[in-house]
Computed example of a mutant assay.
Amino acid sequence: MRRQRLSDQPEAWVSYLDRIAEANNWKQDGYRPLLVDGHELGQTSDAFAASLEKYPDVFVIEPNAVRLADGLSSYDERTEAIAACLNDIRQTRGIHGWRNENYPVGRTFERPVFEIERAAVPLLGTRGYGVHMNGYVRKDGGFFMWIARRSLQKATAPGKLDQMVGGGQPAGLSVRDNLIKECGEEAAIPRDLAEMARPVSAITYRCVRPEGFRWDLLWCYDLELPASFVPVAADGEVDEFMLMNINDVAAGIRETTDYKFNCALVILDFLIRHGFVEADDPDYEHLVTGLHPRF
């Protein structure tokens, strides 16, 4: 099948780059680093930093930084102390989308120094992690992708279009095990089929969203599915699945904001890797580097 070259539609380049720009709109003004043992582990808004002044035994608010108190030195001490603060804030002013699911916090995913509630990640501005899987089908000489429509009940991006499978990466679970779990929960993909998913890429971005500062790394997987397989929304997080021609998917990314902002990036990465966006197109380098910026 002929891959669709971007040069066939020159106006499309700006739109693809718009998706990357939307996911990298963060500016330092109004934010200060979250420091732990002298290392920057997040970016906290001045407004949320003010709400942390109530907890001086946990957070030290400085003119240009938020610092975790020196007396908190162990993983468990930090996790428990921060959890108490966040629970208090949740009770007094609310934290949207509370999930009772912890995310690891550290300079790298492999070496966390504490955990925090997932809904607080964009408030403290720590790095978030997720796993996204593109499910695709080759049939009748064409190339198709399964696209999910997010439930209107979702805390973030309700009703937006999404990968077939995607979810946050909690503490205490491997990326591969999390992917297999999400495959079963979100799309009723049997374990033996889910295990065939291939790790292919990782993308990252920093942006300001309604929920706060997003500084995420997403592990990307591809799974080629048999034409006979039809996903089923198993956990209520998806309203419907649609099998879409890849050119229609690409057009949706280029020309609309119908897709959840980070899912658009995962699909753009897929389009590049599978040759639907080619290296001789004018903005290829900007697209590739925009999906993998160095922070």
Rank of each mutant, 00 (worst) to 15 (best):
G106L: 07
R118K: 12
S45Q: 14
V60R: 06
S51P: 05
R107W: 02
M133S: 11
Q91I: 03
H132E: 01
I61V: 15
R111M: 10
G135P: 00
E80Q: 14
D76L: 13
T44F: 05
P112E: 02
L124I: 10
Q91S: 13
D70K: 12
G97D: 13
R93S: 15
V58W: 11
A83Q: 08
P122N: 08
N134D: 09
A119C: 03
Y129R: 04
V137H: 02
P33S: 09
L68E: 00
T92G: 05
Y136E: 06
N87M: 10
G38L: 11
L123S: 06
R93F: 07
V105L: 04
L35A: 13
V105N: 01
S74E: 10
L86W: 10
V137P: 09
A84L: 11
N64E: 08
Y103F: 12
A50C: 09
R67Q: 04
A65E: 02
T79M: 10
L52E: 05
D76V: 15
D37E: 15
G135Q: 02
V60C: 03
L35W: 15
I116D: 05
E77V: 09
G42D: 07
R93I: 13
D37V: 09
N100C: 03
R99T: 15
F48C: 03
Y55G: 00
I89C: 13
V58P: 02
V121K: 02
N134F: 08
K54G: 00
S45C: 15
T108C: 10
L123G: 05
G135S: 00
L52R: 01
D88V: 08
R107C: 01
E40I: 15
D70N: 13
N102L: 09
Y129P: 02
G71P: 00
E77A: 14
F48Q: 00
Y103H: 10
L35R: 14
P104H: 08
G128W: 02
I82V: 15
W98A: 06
R107S: 01
T92R: 07
D57A: 05
E40A: 15
A83C: 09
E53N: 10
N100L: 11
I95N: 01
A50W: 11
I61F: 07
G94F: 14
A49W: 01
L35F: 06
A49F: 01
G135A: 07
E117A: 04
L41R: 06
T108Y: 08
P63A: 09
R90V: 03
V121I: 08
M133Y: 02
E115W: 05
A50T: 11
G38Y: 11
N100F: 09
V105C: 04
C85L: 12
F59E: 07
A50N: 12
R93H: 12
